[in-house]
């Protein structure tokens, strides 16, 4: 007897954690986001980077249905963001960019109150996280510093063991030590299978943690890229002052956007740093700076460099999304 064949559920066919289709949001006449098509697979750590005002928070708030999309649609863990928002919030942990909590409650009371809303018992995990992040549990919320409030937010976002974590600028206000500890916690959550979607305007921070990143600017996705590839093509900002003005030129394939000013040369360098050092070896230098470019400079590079990074149209962007994805699946 023939058994009706059901396509086997492969990991690749799993419901995406987040899928947005031409998502658009205008507040009256001012732009929130223009056209965001994204697909975040379950199990990923996905960075969402862009300058302030690019539309990061708008995208996140739309996903959680605080605001309604002007056009387009989105699903989170298979649920529609508008009609099934409650189901989404049962399964999602959210750390707001800037938020208040009930000031008069103590940390313990707030954790306890929050726990009551979830169907699973999550008080123990809450208490555990309070310890890991070293928060004084007896203190009322209003007496906490900004960084400590942020830690409380992290506890509240994580305590119910969400399948997807949405973090809006999670490291803002945290000292480097706490940032490291937060990343440890996030990695641990991720190993347990939690998908993590987080926004930031600091590229280096995103690179430490993420598998893939999307770069957003002015409400549009510029590029979706695997962090490995970003790293390979890592740009450096180089500034060289030569002794002799006649020698002040850098002629290397990895050097882009060269700018000369008397004895000084500024350039973005994407090649092997050793090649640069060897190239300069024979000449007298006065000084040499090598720094990580700002996010803005990376954006500009992607804007202007053309080729594989220069998509300008919506279809080009969508293609970039799918290329990045299929690249991942092939592995």
């Amino acid at each position: 007897m023939a058994v009706p064949s059901v396509p086997a559920a492969t990991p690749g066919a799993a419901v995406p954690a987040i899928e947005t289709v031409h998502l658009k949001k205008y507040y009256g006449r001012s732009r929130g986001i223009e056209d965001i098509s994204l697909r975040v697979e379950q199990g990923e750590i996905f960075g969402f980077i862009g300058p302030n005002g690019a539309g990061k928070s708008t995208t996140i708030r739309t996903l959680l249905n605080f605001i309604f999309p002007t056009a387009g649609s989105a699903r989170v863990l298979g649920h529609d963001i508008v009609t099934e928002s409650r189901e989404i919030r049962e399964k999602v942990g959210y750390l707001p960019g800037e938020t208040g909590y009930y000031d008069e409650l103590t940390v313990d009371q707030l954790v306890d109150y929050t726990a009551r809303f979830y169907s699973t018992d999550c008080r123990r995990r809450g208490a555990e996280l309070v310890d890991i992040l070293e928060i004084d549990r007896k203190k009322p919320i209003h007496s906490l510093s900004l960084g400590n409030k942020r830690k409380v937010g992290i506890v509240l976002a994580l305590m119910h063991r969400p399948r997807l974590l949405i973090l809006d600028e999670p490291t803002a206000g945290l000292d480097p030590l706490m940032q490291t500890r937060l990343f440890d916690v996030l990695r641990e959550e991720n190993e347990r299978g939690t998908t993590i979607f987080f926004s930031s305007h600091v590229l280096s921070e995103v690179q430490k943690l993420c598998h893939r990143v999307a770069i957003i600017k002015e409400g549009l996705i510029l590029k979706v890229e695997e962090v490995e590839r970003l790293r390979e093509s890592r740009l450096r900002k180089v500034r060289i002052t030569f002794r002799d003005e006649r020698q002040a030129v850098v002629d290397l394939p990895g050097a882009v956007e060269q700018e000369r000013d008397g004895r000084s040369v500024r350039l973005l360098y994407g090649g092997d740093i050793n090649d640069l050092v060897r190239h300069l070896a024979g000449r007298e230098l006065e000084s040499l700076w090598v720094e990580e470019p700002t996010l803005e400079e990376v954006f500009l590079h992607y804007y202007e460099a053309g080729g594989r990074t220069g998509e300008g149209s919506a279809s080009g962007r969508a293609a970039a999304v799918s290329t990045a994805r299929s690249g991942k699946e092939e592995r």
Binding site: L64, N65, F66, S85, R86, E87, R89, E90, V92, Y94, P96, E98, T99, G100, Y101, Y102, D103, T114, F117, Y118, S119, L156
Partner: peptide, 14 residues
């Protein structure tokens, strides 16, 4: 006004 609304609406409540 006290910016607690995002906290509240991120909870599983309609």
């Amino acid at each position: 006004d006290e910016k607690t609304i995002e906290y509240l609406l991120a909870l599983p409540v309609t």
